[in-house]
Design a protein around this nucleic acid. Structure first.
Lengths: 203, 203, 203, 203
DNA sequence: TATGAATGAGAATTCATTCAT
DNA sequence: AATGAATGAATTCTCATTCAT
């Protein structure tokens, strides 16, 4: 158990060092020796815990995914109206984006890893599953609101959910390129518009 | 003039061949020789027209940007209500995504190119400007609607515009990972929700 | 044709440079850059002509095999009694061993390449075929001598042929380890003994 | 004494485990950790008994050499005619080759170790001495036969001895490449030919 | 004495780029 | 202008060896 913990913590040490370096320089420009140096270990040690640079990269992906999922789940842990949960999801996500811009920059690398790398399908599959999960999470909230009578039921929940999830991803991209953007404020306006309608007249 | 045209057309030939190969294999996995072969020219010839692989990649970026901008502009060329223009922008974008999935997969590479490549800042700057332009375009439509009294004016146009643009980018990402998604249908539900409000009661 | 010749000659240049370096330092201790340097070309150039170090090593194997086969064939080109042909094969082989000790030292590497390398089966197969060919060549001479009535026909030609071929291989090994050995003299005594019998009394 | 024996037996344990792994995968493809695992000890323990992989490899060489030498010595332990002793040496060697093909495959590695390894000269020297010893052993038998009047004395004993020893080495090589060969049968024909003469007419 | 986690030297290979023709 | 042969910088990964426990 002590051993297992030691191994797990060394793996975690490497994942965090890797996240740091990858998020700063991007996957391609990062050398394995850079990660080793950041973790304070020798180059060979990295390979004792991860069989390749890409394997470690994937571990970073899973680690970040887990963290974000945890925060999003927390945002809707308390019972509430569907509209409040939707706003909570949007706000929580924007907050994460705002606080961890450098972490979200890794998205760009994860996505690119699905293109022409040896791990192509591994990242593709993981992303496909990840997005399906988030779409389902949002769509379920919407469907609950529709069942409760709070939300209009003449609208396809899955379609709207897809765009809400999309919006958060795209927002992180824009925040990466433009450090002056305030994702929390933008999301707030968006939530108000989406829930209440942009148009003055009901339609 | 004839010469200039010949040069321009050879550059264009290379850009289109490059777009084809880059979009299929991704930036990293694409070899300059692959592009040369696809264009039917010798490897050295590529360097007669572009000084580096990244320079050519950037030319592809600009070419695709121009094409998309053109289609979006066309979508709002005709005078119409702000809400119709918003829907038109969403629908036109979804249609492009749907019809040119492979082209949009290059987004992932463009974004990654802003991380750790020699052209890092060149791509970053271009993307920042590109997104600012789209946000402004959408925000202007919203502001016009607000001025016309069609749209609620208690909502920050810039914030909503940012999320609308985000949503379209994110949608392309999800479509890349999940070929079975229908962006046009999703966008249609989203437009209805956004314009009319998800909530039954006005808020 | 000129091009084909240029490519062929560059490949040949590399094979000969490789044979030189491999035979001096052995396969493992030879760096690809050593071969490139010996050939007077850049390291990358080697890979333009051979896809890997082992591919080049195999080309050296085939080149040497071809040379030796040529000389052995020449030794029995002229019609002669079977016993003279056997002696000619032995003498010619010993002469090659004597004159090209460094080339024969590569045998040790070729054999070792059949053990645990990526090319394991390629070398194994090639060696098996090579030995089968030599055994057959010698056995055919013996059988002809038996048919002609010159050689005893109560002896299995294949078995003796195997040992004659073996003796020449083993001789090269011993000469590699002991530079003072004279293979030609040793082979001469051996041929006399083998043909005439070691025993004084016919048996 | 107990300690010394314990050390000796641990060294022997490692040598036999190493022989097993080396003979299966070859020297280069064998990892020290493989040997440790085969011996059921930790990787570091190997270095408590042998200072390097090559040192251990050399120990395997000496162990196998000792075993073979023992069997060959046994083959000529009983007083007998020189011709019978020669046949006994050949037959005993073929039997060992036949029964321990995998052990003989290590020859290929030992030979290669004399080329470019850190132990180059150590292996070279050992092999040179080993072959000199076998040549002398065989030559002594021949000379005794010549002195006794059983064997022709117009033939150089050393030369024939060299080729007899060579033949046995080469036979092991061919058997390695071609598992279907029967060394015992081949050697029997060879012994008959060599002792009685291949030619029908005395020469 | 036994261990195995940590190390880093070392080598093969790729491919963008150059430049002589 | 067009070419593609030649180049070598740059990086991943392996594994023998060390040494703290």
């Amino acid at each position: 158990m002590v051993v297992a913990t030691a191994i797990a913590s060394k793996r975690q040490l490497l994942v965090e060092a890797a996240a740091e370096v990858f998020s700063t320089h991007g996957f391609t420009a990062t050398r394995v020796s850079d990660i080793a140096a950041a973790a304070g270990v020798g180059k060979g040690t990295v390979y004792e815990y991860y069989s390749s640079k890409e394997e470690l990269f994937f571990a970073v992906f899973e680690w970040i995914d887990g963290q974000i999922r945890h925060k999003v789940d927390a945002a809707i842990a308390e019972p509430a109206k569907a509209s409040d949960h939707l706003r909570a999801i949007l706000t929580a996500s924007a907050a994460i984006i705002s606080e961890h811009r450098e972490l979200f920059s890794m998205n760009l690398d994860f996505w690119a890893a699905s293109r022409g790398s040896a791990f192509e399908s591994r990242f593709s599959d993981a992303c496909r599953i990840l997005y399906a999960r988030y779409r389902l999470l949002v769509a379920d909230v919407i469907r609950r609101g529709q069942a409760d009578g709070e939300l209009r039921d003449d609208i396809d929940a899955a379609g709207v959910a897809a765009l809400i999830v999309s919006a958060l991803d795209g927002l992180a991209v824009q925040c990466w390129f433009d450090g002056s953007m305030d994702p929390v404020a933008a999301v707030d306006s968006f939530a108000t518009a989406l829930l209440g309608g942009l148009c003055r007249e009901p339609r």
